[in-house]
Write a protein that binds this DNA or RNA. Structure first.
Lengths: 229, 229
DNA sequence: GCAAAAGTGTTCATAATACACCCATGT
DNA sequence: ACATGGGTGTATTATGAACACTTTTGC
């Protein structure tokens, strides 16, 4: 028991669970993990861990993510707390859900394998334990909200990418098609992207220019990208 | 110590803190509470309490709110967890912040007094303890987001109100003026409000019609109210 | 030359903004 | 009769959606 001056005792275990999004081969993907402890041992679960004594829940989430992907710099945002008394049959466990965006091309593949975790397309997920489905749903909602008001992709796509790739990412997130012309105009009007001189010829004979994010330009744009709801 | 099958011990106390918004006399207000325990005894704090063993954090927030306002039906939404290890000098306390919208005309004034709590205009707040300022800031952000995509007011204004009152509420929330004509048109276009036959003559000689929310109409409207950011 | 994707331009509908103007009435 | 807020209408501009059209180049 940790010391405190309140006349209270600890009754809840505290965990974090991470909804880890990645993007590969035109699909939004989720990193899952084969649970190694009872209950529900061997079933697929979100990547999670206990919160230590001397760290914030954010610290814990970063630590857990580093442990499984080898990445230190990644986007992380709190989703919400899940605290139904019976959510975990193993005890009274409170879990803080986070969602993370990671670039699959940067991750440590060995580490992922060693941790018996793997990527699943968001449309072909296995059954998840406990209330992890609900966590995913909330995280997706938050991701959509974020993507609708700012240009995401920096955290998910490779350093250099085409507008087509970006558009497909948005299609994956919102589960709908975007008009190629209008999408391009909208994106370019933000002034966030910089065109490079190189082209990707894998998709067409003409070739599509590669783009990158300009440095530190996230703050100059404030309009919406997609209107949804 | 609560029983669990994990090889873990409890190290965090768990609390909820509520950012309680109300609206009175053209001002957005916050219900604060004079802290009765050390540390920071006697200072102003958000309304909070411990999470019991057998309840979710939402349950705890409702219980705390009922205890201080006497109200059972009120709007409540989770903001986020605050968990910096040193946020509370009294011990390792994790707090889940919620914001609530309540109708000041419905509250139990006696109870509020008895609890040594009182309403403060959002623009004239006293210094708050710990990280409660940060909690308020995040809650306000969430409230603005909510108000920008749906018509709030049902939870804050009296049963019958004028468009002017609603506009002033929005002005208070967003800290800016809205064009009276355009605001009215926008609001009326939602079809959520119903005009009554009575008028409020306190503000003008002509008198302004009272309006109420139609029953169960929150779901039919999906557009934005205010564009912000 | 043609197919296929890249990229640009044009048109139309809708929505946000600014603001002029009439209305009702207590003093 | 006039000042005051209530309420309506209109002109202007900005934005989004649909889609036609031009460009490039491997085959």
């Amino acid at each position: 028991m940790v010391q405190n001056i309140y006349n209270q005792s600890c009754t809840h275990l505290l965990a974090v669970d991470c909804i880890i999004f990645g993007y590969l081969q035109d699909e939004l993907k989720l990193l899952l993990f084969k649970r190694r402890i009872e209950p529900a041992k061997g079933q697929w679960s979100l990547v999670g861990g206990w919160v230590q004594d001397n760290e914030s829940v954010e610290d814990a989430a970063y630590r857990v993510l580093y442990g499984i992907t080898g990445l230190k710099d990644l986007f992380l945002e709190q989703v919400q707390v899940f605290s139904e008394p019976d959510r975990d049959p193993g005890g009274r466990v409170l879990s803080v859900a986070f969602y993370a965006l990671i670039r699959i091309d940067k991750q440590d593949e060995e580490l992922i394998k060693k941790n018996s975790s793997s990527w699943f397309a968001i449309s072909k997920l296995p059954k998840l334990i406990f209330d992890h489905d609900k966590m995913l749903e909330k995280a997706l909602e938050k991701l959509r909200k974020k993507a609708s008001i700012e240009l995401i992709g920096r955290q998910l796509l490779p350093e250099e990418f085409t507008i087509l790739q970006l558009r497909k990412l948005y299609s994956a997130i919102f589960q709908r098609e975007f008009d190629p012309g209008n999408f391009r105009k909208k994106i370019m009007s933000t002034g966030i992207l910089k065109r490079l001189d190189t082209k990707d010829k894998s998709m067409s004979k003409k070739g599509a220019y590669y783009y990158t994010y300009k440095d530190r330009s996230e703050d100059l744009f404030t309009d919406h990208i997609v209107r949804y709801l």
